[in-house]
Amino acid sequence: MRLDGKTAIVTGGASGFGAGIARKFLTEGARVLVADINGEAAQDMASTLGPQATAHQVDVADGASVRDMAQTAMSMFGQVDILVNNAGVTHLPTPLEDVSEEDFDQMFRINMKSVFLTARELVPRMKHRGSGAILNVASTAGISPRPNLNWYNASKGWMITATRTMAVELAPNGVRVNAICPVAGETPLLKSFMGEDTPEMRAKFLSTIPIGRFSTPEDMGNAAAFLCSDEASMITGVAMEVDGGRCI
């Protein structure tokens, strides 16, 4: 029960890594706001997780929607101890000059602007209390980029830099900021990363992971629970690779 009594917001919490993080937080004693642009999926996930989970529909790229999410969490919990910026999108494997402006803009808004918007709403509250933990879900793509995912790689590199600069600025206020960097996993984004989901493509991708398997939502939940717990009170500004050795 390392998160006993803590409250958390998990964006993109209705599926994939976000759902794994929300589930682990609950088993560790936290109350969780499962925030997702798909309100119905968020409600289904919260119902599955039990009474300590609550659903909320949010567009993390829209300032008014993020403000409403923060206010909802504050009215329900009284405070937000943990913020997990997990919501993210990618583009299909494409030469960098051929990615559409629409796809680039969507990725900028969801992968990057959202971190600014959630920080704008929740960091002042954490600073006022003198405590808090923020976890950004980055990617191995931000450390060891692969061809044809150029702008996605760049967005996750941005998130890692944002994590480090937030950490150094907020440390004197008692707020820790870390990131986790998963390799591709069994999530709705897997097909987008690979371009096509075939046994041959899976085998090719898995050959780059020394441990020999994809990341799982449980892997991310375990890493997130540690970094957001008091056990990690001396850890801030790290981008933890949860990747089976992919970045070695």
Rank of each mutant, 00 (worst) to 15 (best):
L3F: 02
I9S: 12
G12E: 10
G12A: 10
G13M: 11
A14N: 04
G20Q: 06
L26K: 11
T27L: 14
A35P: 04
Q43I: 00
P51N: 05
A55D: 04
H56L: 09
V58T: 13
D59P: 03
V60Q: 03
D62Q: 11
D62C: 05
D68G: 10
D68P: 00
A70N: 06
A73R: 04
A73D: 12
M74P: 00
G78P: 10
V80W: 04
V84P: 02
N85G: 02
H91G: 02
T94P: 04
D98S: 13
S100P: 04
F104E: 03
N111D: 15
A119S: 15
R120T: 12
M126T: 10
K127R: 15
R129N: 10
R129W: 04
A133I: 06
A133S: 15
L135R: 05
S139V: 06
S144V: 12
A154N: 00
A154Y: 01
G157C: 02
T165Y: 09
P172C: 07
V175C: 04
R176T: 08
A179W: 04
I180K: 09
T187C: 11
L189C: 02
K191N: 14
S192C: 00
M194I: 12
M194T: 14
E196M: 02
D197C: 00
F205I: 01
F205N: 08
L206R: 12
P210I: 09
G212V: 11
P217N: 12
E218D: 15
G221A: 06
A223C: 10
A224V: 09
A225C: 10
L227Q: 09
A232F: 06
A232Y: 03
I235C: 06
E241N: 15
D243G: 09
D243F: 05
I248T: 15
